[in-house]
Every structure is written in C-alpha cells, then in structure tokens.
Nucleic acid binder design. Sequence first.
DNA 1: GTCTATAAAAGGATAGAC
DNA 2: GTCTATCCTTTTATAGAC
Lengths: 198, 198
Amino acid sequence: MSPTGPYAKGIAKREEILTAALGVIARLGCRKAAIREIAEAAGLSHAGLVHYFGSREALYEQVLRERDERDAAMFDEVEPTFAMYVKLVEHNATVPGLVQLFIEYSAEASAPGHPSRDFFVDRYNRIRAALSRAVIVAQRNGEVGPQVQPESVADVIMATTDGLQLQWSLDRSVDMVGRLRELWDGVRRTSWALDPLP
Amino acid sequence: MSPTGPYAKGIAKREEILTAALGVIARLGCRKAAIREIAEAAGLSHAGLVHYFGSREALYEQVLRERDERDAAMFDEVEPTFAMYVKLVEHNATVPGLVQLFIEYSAEASAPGHPSRDFFVDRYNRIRAALSRAVIVAQRNGEVGPQVQPESVADVIMATTDGLQLQWSLDRSVDMVGRLRELWDGVRRTSWALDPLP
DNA sequence: GTCTATAAAAGGATAGAC
DNA sequence: GTCTATCCTTTTATAGAC
C-alpha cells in the first residue's frame, strides 16, 4: 500500500471524492446532494464517480464505514472508556459534513428495505457492545456502581449522542460534549444508590 | 366547524390524505414515498393532492404540525410532567409511519436552507420549554433535587427520545419507554447528591 | 375540487470511445 | 480510469378541461 504503488492514484482520487462529498453535504444536506454535484466538486464526471462507488448509497455507506474504521482503531485496541467515546463526539463537531451525512443517511436507511439498513443495525450492535464494555470497565474500577445494566446505559448514551447531533445541526450553540458528560456523571452517581425511589 | 358545514368534505379529504401519507411512509420510508404514491393511496390524483398542500415539504410539515397540536392540547393545559411526556412516546410506538416521518424529515430539514428548518428549530425550543417546566415542577415537589439544570435535562431527554426512535426503527425490540424511564430515574437520584465526583 | 395531460427538471445508471 | 453521450425513471409543478 505504498503511496507510489500501482493503485496510488486510484486511492488518492478515492479520498478526494470522499472529501468532496462531505463538502457538498455540509452545504446542501445529504438529500439534496446529487451524485452529479459531488462529482463536479471532486473534479471528475458523474460517470467517473460511479466507476469508483457504483451508487449513491454505496458512496455514502463507504464514507461512514471508513469513519468507523478510523474510530475503531482507537476503540478496539485498548479497553474502551467513556472518555474515549467523548473524544470521538468532540471530533465530530469539527466535521459538519460527516455529522450531517450521518444524521440524514442513518434516518433514510432506517426505512424498510433500504440497502444500508443492515449496515446501521450492525453498527449499533457494535457500538452497544463497545460502550457496554466501557461501563463494565468503569464498574470494575468502582467508578460506576454494580447495579447498572451496561447495555441499557449503552443504548441511552448512543441515543443521546444521535439526538444531540440533530439538535446541534439545527443550532450550533448546543453543547454536545457538555450534555454527554452530564449524562455520564448522572450514571456514576445514580448507580451507587439503587434503593427504591419514592 | 360542524361535520356538515361547507368545508366538511374538504376537511375529511384532507384527513384522508394525511392518514394515507403515514401508511405509505411506514411502508417505504419518507425519502422514497413519492407524492404520487401518497395521492394514489388517498384515492385521488397527484395534482389533486397538490391542490391541498402545495408541496411535498408542506405536506410533511403539516402532518407533524397537526400531531404536535394534538399533543400540545395535552401538554399545555395543565402543568407538564415527565409521565405525560412518556405517554406521548408510548403512543408514538403505535404509529410507525409517524415516527418514520419524524426521523427522516427532521434529519432532512436540519440541512442548511431547508424550508422546514425553522419549524424544527421552533419545535425544539417549545419542547425544551415544556420539559424544563416539568423538571421545575418535579423540583417543587421534591421529586428532583434543586441542583439540576432544567434546560440541560430537557435537552438530554429530547435527544434520548429522538435517538431511541431511530434505534427502534432499526430494531423493533428496543424498549423506548423503558430506557426513558431509567433515564428519568437517574435524574431523580442524581440530583440529590451533587457533591464532587472522584 | 378534481381530473387529464404535459412539462420540465433532476436523479441515477449504462454504453462505448479514448 | 475517465469522458461524452444517452437513456430511463422519478419527481415535482403547471395548465386547462370538466
């Protein structure tokens, strides 16, 4: 995979297309971002772009897949922690096109029969597993109490993250990281005091 | 507004269109739901539908607007409570088309320049205000401690709700109400113990 | 108020040349 | 690997008859 290898040009062009896609999506949103316009922004014809990805859905799925692979490198090698997760969210706030793509494309893909539906189902399962491990690690540390259900907490953290991204897309002053930290603090406090509520 | 008044037929047809729209969206998703197909499902021509609403965006916004008006009747007349909010979420789970529309259309509308963007910005402000009041009421009752920031909690509850709806759309076994109740229990427990965390 | 018909714009996919 | 050209489908919008 050396940069001077036989596919160097193809790989570079591919990256260029992915970057161009994020730019167009940040500007127009994912629904209005035509494959034609992305091609133009990437400096090639629309047929040329199709040559690389095959379809609009494949292109978008690929952008998100590569983001996940970059993130997974961070998440998989050591024990996952909530602090690492927050770092990813923090980074997202610097890539508006990626967030916009995720918001719109995950929503679109949740429809019955969508070609990327399975990708997102798998993705949530993967992240739930990683976040559950983070909770379990925190429980081993004594940071979080033993009564908490790791998977439930994982689901709520994922949901909050997604919902905050939508709010942030509508209003840039929303503090995603702040809200997420408050949620986590709540989990930590809660879990040591599980006597019945009045 | 009697059912035999001069506009009775128009109003009834209008309702029929809105219901048909939800059916088509539940089946195909909002992106793939063509205005033509909705018209057909409602038993009129596509031009006839346009006569009522003017555009795809206006139709979808109207569906969500009327849902909100029904819900607001419940939320505005008395002091809002978290229990009432959960009832609304519980009801959503019986209307998959409405949830699918909300997921996809709110995502789409968060893009720059979208005609329904302001509708959603206003909507979040409105719901944030109502949920904040619910927290304040709970604080007056002593159900929630005084240290909690009502608006922060409101933002997290809204975000969690939206995110859970997406998860639920991808996997019907997700328990939206259960997760939401756990979150609220967490808020109640948390808020009485705000000494610094380790 | 509803239809038919048509426009006309845009999106996506494909074929074939270079 | 990239372009031009073309095609097919979909989508929305409009005009005008009934």
